[in-house]
Design a protein around this nucleic acid. Structure first.
Length: 463
RNA sequence: GGCGGGUUGGCGGAGAGGUUACGCAGCGGAUUGCAAAUCCGUGUAGACCGGUUCGAUUCCGGUACCCGCCUCCA
């Protein structure tokens, strides 16, 4: 059995991973709020935890890992979008417009994440399907004295949970000193956070013991992880930005509702993504979605390889140069593994991944396999990382049969060898290069392959 | 202000208390009609200042700088 070591954000140490139940390893990762296309930053945790999912499936068996990633479809941004559509004259009730918006966004999300080679999680629960469970958990928290109702709101009583702040390394008193918390008259303590809030008629709402309302953001993950993975599970993941307050609040809710359990044993946080050295933001003008990149012709597999080139715990910089290098690497590897039956993943690659998802180290091992000419091992090992899969390699293929061009060039070359006039050969070669075709001539013959920027249209008239 | 992370060779980016990371680029050579691809060889880096040690880029402390979160833009 491969020993997996993971950096546990709860203990701040790298620990040997021991599942609660090796027959059912359970992972929960915070998913997207489905109000718009996923931007590139949203994709990082998807790729990181997909790699973890693949590793766990490899080690414990594909049928022995349960991976849950939620869709947050209760959110004021979604409401705002739907409301705007309604005011613009869209037909249907607000609820219908909201459902339409979330359905549409989930479809986009799936398309985009599929393109990155991410496996679909075992379960992708939608918050709206678990409001009953959320209400039950909130009621439990109230009954246990960890929450209180005021003015149609229900708030979590932060002072009732001594461990509050441990995950994110903060103390309640320090945070209040920072004074960047919303002070509301109905709060007992400024740090208390909302479990339930009232909805007026313009907002979606559910009936509850506290009136018609909707859940606060944090409770959904506590309720859905409980429903799908149980009160204790193995790994909880998400972006480091979620560590506080989201994950801290999840811990508080879940541990107070189920003090007998341990909630998540291991916490994993991926660091943030940057673009050309800067934070991606709309104001800097460097904000873009996964779909934008795909639309520009950057293959999902290239995005994936770039992501995996940096350890998940470090900030990752997306640059055009990296994308170019990743594309060149993948073209080389794909040419090598074409038509090859994968063998078993290399032990060195598995070992690297098992060492707290050292994907950069694993990629170095892929290079070693390529250098050693082990195409079968390369294909299998890359497959473990979601790379070089048959179903995502279309981008590297020419789409047209280049064999006639190779034959033509070979004929010209053979003639030139006799006449010593290489001008016609060079002319054709230049034209092929201009079309993005890689030309290799050797004693053995002529090879032509699609290269970066390949454009079939530019091949017109070359035959 | 509070909390957390980072600083590695031209660029990207890892591991390890003491032997080559790796990739890209570069340089030299082989090969080639010329190239490309390939093969061989090549670089000796670790912000700064101290400490621990036989020995630190790797451990500890401090300084500087950078970044993120604390503002439901991951």
């Amino acid at each position: 059995m491969v020993t997996i070591r993971l950096h546990n954000g709860k203990t701040r140490m790298k620990e040997v991973f021991v599942p609660i139940d090796p027959m059912n390893v359970r992972v929960y990762v915070c998913g997207p709020t489905v109000y718009d296309r996923a931007h590139l930053g949203n994709a990082r945790p998807v790729v990181v935890f997909d790699t973890l999912f693949r590793l766990l499936r490899h080690v414990y068996g594909a049928g022995h890992v349960t991976y849950v990633r939620n869709f947050t479809d209760v959110d004021d941004k979604i409401n705002a979008t739907a409301l705007a559509r309604k005011e613009a004259g869209a037909a249907g009730t607000l609820e219908a417009l909201i459902a339409e918006r979330t359905e549409e966004t989930i479809r986009w999300y799936h398309e985009d994440m599929d393109a990155l080679g991410a496996l679909r999680p075992t379960h992708e629960p939608r918050a709206t399907a678990y409001v009953g469970q959320m209400i039950a958990m909130i009621a439990e928290l109230v009954a246990r004295g960890h929450a209180y109702a005021r003015d149609g709101h229900v708030l979590f009583r932060v002072r009732s949970f001594a461990e509050y702040g441990r995950l994110s390394g903060r103390s309640v008193d320090d945070m209040i000193a920072g004074a960047r918390v919303e002070v509301a008259p109905f709060k007992e303590d400024p740090m208390d956070f909302v479990l339930w809030k009232p909805s007026d008629d313009s907002l979606p709402g559910w009936q509850s013991p506290w009136g018609r309302g909707r859940p606060g953001w944090h409770i959904e993950c506590s309720a859905m992880s409980l429903a799908l993975l149980g009160a204790s599970f193995d790994i909880h993941g998400g972006g480091i930005d979620l560590q506080f307050p989201h994950h801290e609040n999840e811990v508080a809710q879940s541990c107070c509702a189920h003090p007998e359990a341990e909630f998540a044993r291991v916490w994993m946080h991926n660091e943030m993504l940057q673009v050309e050295g800067k934070k991606m933001s709309k104001s800097l003008g460097n904000f873009f979605t996964v779909r934008d990149l795909l639309g520009q012709g950057v293959p999902g597999e290239v995005i994936r390889l770039v992501f995996l080139g940096t350890h998940y715990g470090r900030p990752m910089d997306w640059t055009a140069e990296k994308a170019g290098q990743a594309e060149a690497t993948l073209r080389k590897w794909r040419a090598m593994v074409a038509g090859v039956q994968p063998s078993a993943p290399s032990g060195a690659v598995v070992a690297a991944l098992a060492d707290d998802l050292n994907t950069a180290g694993a990629i170095a091992e892929l290079h070693a396999l390529a250098a050693a000419g082990d195409a079968a091992g390369l294909k299998a090992s890359a497959g473990l990382m979601g790379l070089l899969q048959d179903d995502m390699g279309g981008w590297a293929e020419a789409g047209v049969d280049l064999a006639p061009y190779a034959a033509r060039l070979a004929a010209l070359r053979a003639a030139a060898m006799e006449t010593k006039d290489f001008a016609p050969v060079d002319a054709m070669k230049a034209a092929l290069l201009a079309a993005g075709v890689e030309v290799r001539m050797s004693k053995a013959g002529v090879e032509v392959l699609p290269g970066p920027g390949f454009d079939a249209a530019k091949l017109e008239g070359l035959l």
